[in-house]
Design a protein around this nucleic acid. Structure first.
Lengths: 153, 153
DNA sequence: GTCTGACAGTTGAGAACGCAAGCACATGGT
DNA sequence: ACCATGTGCTTGCGTTCTCAACTGTCAGAC
């Protein structure tokens, strides 16, 4: 109604809309072509990229829009269908690893093509290379990530 | 396992992590200081910025991580506590507007301070002005927004 | 050693969500 | 006018989520 649009709020709105749009597109594509919920896919993908194809539960939960308890149940389901298994952490016996199984890796790889295709269409096709790089750097900084390549400022 | 990081996937991961982090921070801050779930806040905020403080149901749903049915129930709840009311659309009698009530506006305004403070901390404090501008532009393009460039800085 | 406070993960109870079907209205063809 | 098809929103039902409380473990103080 009035002009309360400051740059913070506008940027946040845009970020939310963009993320929501892509998220919904991925959800639909994965469900349709790979019969795998997006959150499940993201868990498998994160595991596949981690040292030893395993991650601590809380680290997975922190990377995704899920609470710890939500992740507990999701991993329950993934374990039940054999895509993931739990393994207890020997240096901290409170901890639990979620570990990718061979089956999980196969399912993941089959879904990756769909995933990448959607990203191609929604991210790459709409942005320049520079924009994509800045987007990535900015989001990494917001997320407090190690910022894998800190080449450009 | 490691080498599969292409720029599309990395950018998407960063986008998700950033959005998730800020989303969770907002959720906690709003719940703690304004006793208002973030999704409810977002509905009120979107309505407040629309022509006549009203929006069609589906337009609200498209802007948020919700389906139409999810929004129906959320608006049910908001209507029940008086923050929003429904009004039928006279040009298309299938349609329904969600309209901000005076109470809703008051609640929204009280929550806005908390909201902006969190964005200040998580977005503005971690990015340069240029980065924020590019982030906004890129996300707008991804989301297919009109890309209004008249934001005051 | 024992205690205290914090942390990792799980669980029970209830709330919130999505899918698919349903209803009401709109639109275009004949 | 009529019917067929498509759209906007809601509802029933089953699934998935969160919150708070709980268990088991760790680390520091004494």
């Amino acid at each position: 109604m009035q002009g309360c649009h400051d740059v913070r709020v506008i940027s946040w709105r845009a970020l939310t809309r963009a993320h929501t749009l892509v998220w919904k597109a991925l959800e639909r594509a994965l469900e349709d072509h790979a019969d795998l919920p997006l959150l499940s896919y993201e868990v498998l993908a994160h595991l596949s990229e981690a040292e030893g194809e395993r991650m601590r539960m809380q680290d997975v939960a922190a990377a995704l829009p899920l609470t710890r308890s939500g992740l507990t149940r999701l991993v329950d389901r993934l374990e039940r269908v054999g895509l993931v298994r739990r393994e207890s952490c020997d240096v901290d016996r409170r901890g639990t690893y979620a570990v990718l199984t061979p089956t999980g890796r196969v399912v993941l790889e089959r879904a990756q093509a769909v995933h990448v295709r959607v990203l191609e269409e929604h991210l790459v096709a709409r942005l320049s290379g520079d924009e994509l790089a800045v987007l990535r750097a900015a989001c990494s900084r917001i997320a407090g990530l190690p910022e894998a390549s800190r080449a450009r400022t």
